[in-house]
Simulated scan of single mutants.
Amino acid sequence: MENCTEKNSSSTEKSNGSYAAGQGNPLYDMFVTQLSQLHTVCAKEALARGFGRADLVRSVGETWFVDPQYGRGSYWFYLMDGDTIVVSMDITYRRAVESAMETVPYLGFGLYEHAMPMYCSPECAASSCKLMGHDWDGGPYISSFEPDKRLSSASITIAPEAIRRYANALHCDEKKLRRAIGRLTTSEGAPGLPSALRGLDITYPAASVADSYYHAKVIECFALLASSIPEKVTSADAVNISDRDCVECLCSYIDDNLSSDLSTKTLCDIAHVSEGKMISAFRNVQGNTPQSYIRARRLEHGRRLLLDESRKISEIAKSAGYRNQGAFTDAFKRAYGTTPRAYRNRLRIE
């Protein structure tokens, strides 16, 4: 597929320096790979083939249009400073489509509307808030979309190392800002952030000011996110914040040690709290018990590893923290309605 950066090369070169055409940048390559698999075509090629809309092609970044054989709509993204991408998309597929790819680590947050939340987060799909945050370590990732479902979002994606620059610009703690992104999906949101993100959808700045506008927009969104982090602890909030800190500490440990001993006693020793206190904190913050959280994380980890066909299911079971393949198979079937082997075979066929 032809690269569509030629149309906007001058403005892209001004803002991206050595990443003038984007190619070779991990974030850029990840986006282009997924867009190619999802049957979208860059604007220059789409317009030459007679579809797409010239008035939707922005002055900077890249605009892609869905191939009419598969659906309709557009997808725009803009790489800034080599480590930040802003996105606006609104697409609908006529037939089921899927993307399976190897992703790089990234952090991201955005406003996901219409049917999009159902593909991103069960928690957000069931809530009134459509803000979601992602702290992704990279690895195999599969996206499957059903026909006749409108998918719309306005989001910001950054390389993990960029979080320090934004935290320094806002004079806030880097770790707290990162945690604020990760828990955005299950929090009550951040005041003003949905409107700020929606600006990525509706504003088409002129080429002469576009780069400055999008840089300012990213800082605005991060500032609103940072402002949602409590600065002072009042006596009324002390218990809840204590619970949140305890659970965040344990979740971080769990996510990094899925194959290790994660018994309730072990977790209590790590957090230096009683069993009752830990379970109560988890229920207050996560809405479930520590062991429920562990089961979900282990199964999701195992499901992702199944995308790598070079790995034996017995090895995946061990990596996911199960004592043997049989225990992993039983748990997987209860959660997903199919066995790990059948799931892998289905992916191979599709």
Rank of each mutant, 00 (worst) to 15 (best):
V247L: 06
I254K: 05
K7L: 15
E220D: 15
S274F: 10
Y166F: 15
P340R: 08
V86E: 01
L250T: 07
N257K: 09
V97Y: 03
P340N: 03
L27E: 05
A21D: 14
S208P: 02
S143P: 04
A210R: 09
K175G: 11
V273L: 12
C251D: 09
C120H: 08
D255H: 06
A327V: 08
K7S: 13
P122T: 11
E45D: 13
W136Q: 01
L177T: 07
L38F: 05
Y112V: 00
T5M: 09
S10R: 12
L56W: 10
G24R: 08
C246T: 14
Q37L: 10
F77C: 04
Y78T: 00
N288I: 12
T40F: 04
L267V: 01
P205S: 09
G17A: 11
R53S: 14
P290I: 06
T5D: 04
K265P: 11
I313F: 04
T5R: 06
V285N: 01
D261F: 12
S187Q: 07
A115E: 06
S212R: 12
V97E: 05
Q23F: 11
R311F: 13
A226E: 00
R283M: 12
A317G: 00
R49A: 08
T103C: 07
S99C: 14
D135R: 09
V104K: 15
T63D: 11
G24K: 05
E248V: 12
A271D: 03
R183N: 09
T203A: 10
A210P: 10
K265V: 12
S36T: 13
R198I: 01
R297M: 05
R341N: 09
F77I: 00
Y293R: 04
T157R: 04
D255R: 13
L347Y: 08
